[in-house]
Structure formats: structure tokens, C-alpha cells
Design a protein around this nucleic acid. Structure first.
Lengths: 228, 228
DNA sequence: CGTGCGCTTGACTTTTTTCAATAAAGGTGG
DNA sequence: CCACCTTTATTGAAAAAAGTCAAGCGCACG
């Protein structure tokens, strides 16, 4: 596919006039990323940002003793690393591909140039940053107000709302990663999933498929008025 | 003081040409806020955003059972509620004044107008959003990777780096609020502070003054390689 | 066909919360 | 200015939640 078309399909660039899309295509560098590849590391100089066009990337931080916490799982189309571009600082976290795919790299200077001349691009950008901020706020709230079962219930309900009307949800990440995304460890996640099954809230099949049986029960858990 | 001068002093509006500042002054509404006053509530329609010119405001979320978690304590000069403006959604949290003060309100439409015509304003805005995102990411990391003593140590070191070279730190918020800001409860905070005193890491005087005695010790705690 | 990684489970420890009681501080009205 | 009342802070004891360590299973991949 032409780079221009890839770019036109990115939400961040919605509403940009064709000439600007072409300009972007000129400065964008497309690169292959392989599963396990570190795209940038915490502390690296932020010389630009990335947009994934295929595959998936995890954004995570590392604690001093090596434990990792996943902040985001980026699907194709989402920009990442752009915070460094605007804050004018280093990348604030690691980015690692968890599937083979492709990413476009946009160098900082050229992008800023474009922003300055294009209000609709900056509105898009601000909307994306704002949405992300809102999501982070929700995460912080969940981490500090809810226990793991509540956070897990939240996440399952979210997956089911995203995933269409399908009867069964399929986890698209490993349980290790899911645990990290929810601020806990695999053992705890495993136990709570087992408890949810025993309580008749959900049913599982294989390692990655979950069916919600008692939606109300999960909602009660997520809201914190019931306890597992 | 003239509204224009108040506005000129706000970092968000750094670098704006005088005519634009005057335009802002035209649309800004200055209002008094009293301690305890709710400026906006979670779910209220986001018709604009605020910048504090005096006093302090807490931004918080409420859990279904009424527990609150503080996301930010806003000092004068910081915009808040702007996420709703760009995301085009309702306010995502509560804002309540914790001191008497004054706030400027900027209606959404007029502000967007201004952004569109002024690249340097949008760059400022994006830098602020980015910084905030970065701070949230750090909070999330701390909440999911560190125990309360580590988070508290972090915070104390942060306060001491902010607060100039003063020997004694003064907490500018109540311990209830501090506990909430760190994702715990007052009892736990109190106990951990007491332990830090016993271990000779800090010294306290009155309810709001803390002196760091063993900085290295605190740093070890914050990094997670020591345990209290 | 074995090796390794992801997942699960058990026993145990640590951390944090909950509940309850008390003490100190701060503001208000007489 | 002082007594009173509400809010804020501290402490103890017990319960709950989550984390650690260790062992074992199963499936994919070389």
C-alpha cells in the first residue's frame, strides 16, 4: 500500500488536506518491527514519534528491580512516543512490539512544522492527548479505589463492550501481560479468575477465551458494592 | 490587577502576542471560589475550562461508595477541565476549591477559535497535556509497582526538590488529602510516617512539618531496594 | 521427543485495610 | 477569651487482600 494511504487512514490525521498528507508521507519513515523488538527505551532522546500501521506494541515502565508495568497496549493507528515530542524531553517509557508489524516514524522537527501550519492537525492531536489523559485518570482511580477483582471485572466488561456481540471474549494478550496491565501479578490474576468461575460469574475455555455468564454480578464487582 | 496581566502570567499563554491576550481577557470570566466550593462535578457538561489565579483546587474522582481519590492538587496558573474541551465530552472528575481564591473561566468555543489561529498557543497546550500525561504515567507506575512507603518517600523527595533549599518541608495539604493523593488511607499514612521517624529517616514537628534526615535512606525506599 | 514458557495451585508472609477508640487541633458562638 | 464541637490525626488489634516462593502441568516449538 502507498504510504499516503496508510497515513490517510490514521485517526490523528483525519481531516488533513491531501497536500499535507503527502507532505507527511515525504517525511515518514516506514520500518518493520519484529515481535520482541524494542522500538525505543525509557530515557532515549525523543527525536520523533511513531504510528503503528500493523501489529501491536506494548508501552511499559521498568521498576529498579526489573519488574515491568504495562501502561498501554497500542493497536494499529494509535500514535505513541508523541509525549516526548511536545514535552521536549526523553521518551518516558519503553515501547516493545509484541507482534510483527510495521511502524511509521515521524521526525520531530518536520512534524512540529506541520502542526504550526495546520490547526485541524493540532485539534486532532489535542483530542487524542485528552482522551488518553482521561483514560489514565480512570486507571489511576481504579488502581487506588478498587481491588483486583473489581479492576478485572471492569476490564472484562470493557472487552465485551468492545468486542461486538460475540458470546465469547478472546483475550488478545497473554495473562502475564493482562496481569501487568491491571497492576497485579499472574498468580493473583489466575486465582481471581478461578474464583469468578467458581462463583458462576464467568466461564472459561482454553487459556484465552472467557464467556460472561452473570453480567450483573460483574457490574456489582466493578462498582465495588459486592465483594468476591 | 487587570485581567490581561493575570492572563499574561499564565504559562499556558506564554508567547502569545498582546492582541490575543486582550482577546482572551475579553472572553474570560473571573469568579471567586470559596473553600469547599465545587467548581464542576464529574459528568457536568464541559462548556469551557478554568485557570486558577489564586488559591488551590483539588481534582478528584468518587467511587460508588463515596470514597474519593485525589488526582491532582492544582496550584495557581495551571489550567484544569481542559480535557473536556478537546475530547468534546463531559468533565471527567470533580474540581473543588480547598482554599479561597479566584478562577478564570474560558468558554469553549472562543478558546477553540483562538487555538485555530494561534500555533504557539496550541504548542503550549500540547506541552502541558504531554507533561500531565507523563506525570500520570509516573503515578500509575508508582501505584502498581511500589508499596506505600516507596510512594511516600518519592513524594517527600519531590517536595524537597520543589520546595527550595529549606530545611523543613511544609505539607500544604491535610494528611487525609495526602493519603488520598497517594492512593491509601490516613491510618496507613500515619503509621508509615511514624515508622520513618522511628527508623531515623525523617523528623516531624507539628502536623505539617517534616525534615528529611536520611535522604539516601528515602531514596533507597523510593527505588525499592530497601524495605521499611 | 524433550525443553521451555505460560499458566495454575498451594502454603506462607507481608502489606494494607477495617473497625474502634482516643487524642489533638481548629473554628464558632457565647 | 474560653468552652464546645467538629474535624483531623494517631494507635491498636484483627481481618482481608495481595504478593512471594515453590512445585507441577500442558502445550507449542525447535
Amino acid at each position: 500500500m502507498e504510504i499516503v494511504d496508510l497515513i490517510a487512514a490514521i485517526p490523528l490525521f483525519n481531516g488533513l488536506p491531501r497536500p499535507h498528507l503527502e507532505e507527511l508521507a515525504m517525511i515518514a519513515l516506514s520500518q518493520r518491527v519484529k515481535r520482541g523488538q524494542i522500538i525505543f527505551a525509557d530515557g532515549d532522546e525523543g527525536t520523533g514519534f511513531y504510528v503503528l500501521t500493523a501489529g501491536r506494541v506494548k508501552i511499559f515502565k521498568l521498576s529498579p528491580d526489573g519488574k515491568e508495568h504495562i501502561l498501554h497496549i497500542m493497536p494499529p493507528g494509535e500514535p505513541f512516543g508523541e509525549v516526548a515530542v511536545f514535552a521536549g524531553e526523553a521518551f518516558p517509557a519503553y515501547a516493545e512490539a509484541i507482534e510483527d508489524g510495521y511502524a511509521l516514524f515521524f521526525p520531530r522537527a518536520a512534524f512540529i512544522e506541520l502542526i504550526i501550519t495546520n490547526p485541524s492537525l493540532s485539534m486532532n492531536m489535542m483530542a487524542i492527548l485528552s482522551r488518553r489523559l482521561r483514560k489514565f485518570a480512570a486507571t489511576i482511580e481504579a488502581l487506588s479505589l478498587k481491588e483486583v477483582p473489581g479492576r478485572l471485572a471492569d476490564h472484562l466488561l470493557y472487552l465485551s463492550s468492545e468486542g461486538g456481540q460475540k458470546e465469547w471474549l478472546t483475550l488478545d494478550i497473554s495473562k502475564n501481560q493482562l496481569a501487568s496491565l491491571m497492576g497485579t501479578i499472574p498468580e493473583t490474576l489466575s486465582r481471581i479468575l478461578a474464583r469468578m468461575v467458581k462463583e458462576g460469574l464467568i466461564e472459561t475455555s482454553g487459556h484465552r477465551n472467557i464467556r460472561i455468564i452473570d453480567r450483573d454480578g460483574l457490574e456489582g464487582l466493578a462498582a465495588g458494592d459486592v465483594r468476591l
